[in-house]
């Protein structure tokens, strides 16, 4: 009897072990693949506390938080902060407004609207660096079609990205061209998934449309708007491709956002310590933002599941 009992118990025990180990076995390879990335991350933390210039190796030394403390009195740093925040604020708010407007335009699922929304995916699928090159060709001072179109309306010598006054405008425009469709798609999906009943009731009662929009549509769409905004904010504050491909941070220091500044610190000034400290600060900002984003995103997902 006991022998039989252990015999029947043995496979159960084994499968229980397997059952407990299985999730780890399944997720371990993916984790191991990414864990290597934690090494350069901690290296970056360490570098950020070093006086480390590749052209002056003799000066290398551990200086605790001096790189960070130096930032407080460094106008270059505050320029970076200001430009990054301005860039992120401008791109995200303009893209949100435009994306929402387009989503509302295309809300009704007609054939034409669907084709339009598919075509609007194309800029989003274009590599941002290549999009910047496209716009560079179109804004070229000699033959750029957009420069020419501006002369038709009486604006001559518009220098786009090479003029310190219009450089930010130009890269924001390219960013809008690439990423507005992203917000549009999320909000369109959101709009089309809203329950019909409140809108039908409002139409029956003859409620004015502006009231419907501000009191029904917008509040119900808000979770989608917040998700899309946070997602874009996370990317936009780290923008590198568009700005680097367009002007490499110029003219002057006009477009030296975080990542472009860190790139130049590392490769041109070979100031490893400063570039690492700059990236840690950007990481802290994005980490805080991404925590808010993930929470918001999970909430939205739960809601979508509840409605399922």
């Amino acid at each position: 009897m006991t022998a039989a009992a252990t015999q029947t118990r043995a496979p159960v025990k084994q499968s229980r072990f397997m059952r407990r180990a299985l999730p780890y076995i399944l997720s371990l390879p993916a984790l191991l693949m990414c864990i290597g990335i934690l090494i350069p991350f901690f290296t970056a933390v360490y570098y950020s506390m070093l006086r480390y210039r590749m052209n002056l190796p003799a000066m290398k030394g551990f200086i605790w938080f001096q790189n960070y403390i130096n930032f407080f009195t460094d106008p270059k740093f505050w320029n970076t902060v200001q430009i990054s925040l301005t860039y992120a604020f401008l791109t995200v708010s303009l893209e949100l407004l435009l994306g929402l407007a387009i989503a509302l335009l295309l809300q009704r699922p007609s054939r034409l609207n669907n084709i339009a929304s598919i075509l609007l995916l194309l800029p989003l699928m274009t590599a941002p660096a290549l999009a910047a090159l496209m716009w560079k060709l179109m804004t070229h001072p000699d033959f750029g079609v957009l420069s020419y179109l501006l002369t038709l309306v009486g604006i001559h010598d518009f220098k786009w990205a090479s003029d310190p006054d219009t450089a930010l405008f130009t890269v924001v425009l390219v960013d809008m061209w690439v990423y507005t469709p992203f917000i549009m798609i999320l909000l369109l999906a959101g709009l089309r998934s809203l329950p019909k009943a409140p809108f039908e009731a409002a139409a029956l009662d003859g409620v004015p449309r502006s009231f419907v929009f501000f009191r029904i549509t917008l509040p119900m769409l808000m979770p989608y708007i917040i998700t899309a905004t946070l997602f874009r904010l996370l990317d936009s504050i780290q923008q590198f491709d568009i700005i680097y491909a367009m002007t490499q941070g110029g003219p002057g220091d006009k477009l030296l956002v975080f990542q472009v500044q860190a790139y130049l610190d590392f490769f041109q000034a070979t100031n490893v310590g400063r570039s690492a400290a700059l990236m840690i600060i950007l990481w802290a900002i994005t980490y805080a933002l991404s925590n808010v984003f993930i929470k918001q995103w999970l909430k939205l997902r739960e809601r979508a599941h509840g409605a399922h």
């Binding site: 997720s27 993916a30 984790l31 990414c34 990335i37 350069p40 991350f41 290296t43 970056a44 570098y47 996370l234 780290q238 590198f240 975080f258 990542q259 860190a262 790139y263 590392f266 490893v272 570039s275 690492a276 990236m279 840690i280 950007l282 990481w283 994005t286 980490y287 933002l289 991404s290 984003f293 993930i294």
Partner: peptide, 19 residues
């Protein structure tokens, strides 16, 4: 683990790329 992996998506690329 899932959150760690997801947070990689949002970390600035140059933070790890430079080291």
């Amino acid at each position: 683990i899932a959150f760690t992996l997801l947070s990689f998506r949002f970390a600035p690329a140059l933070l790890v790329l430079l080291p």
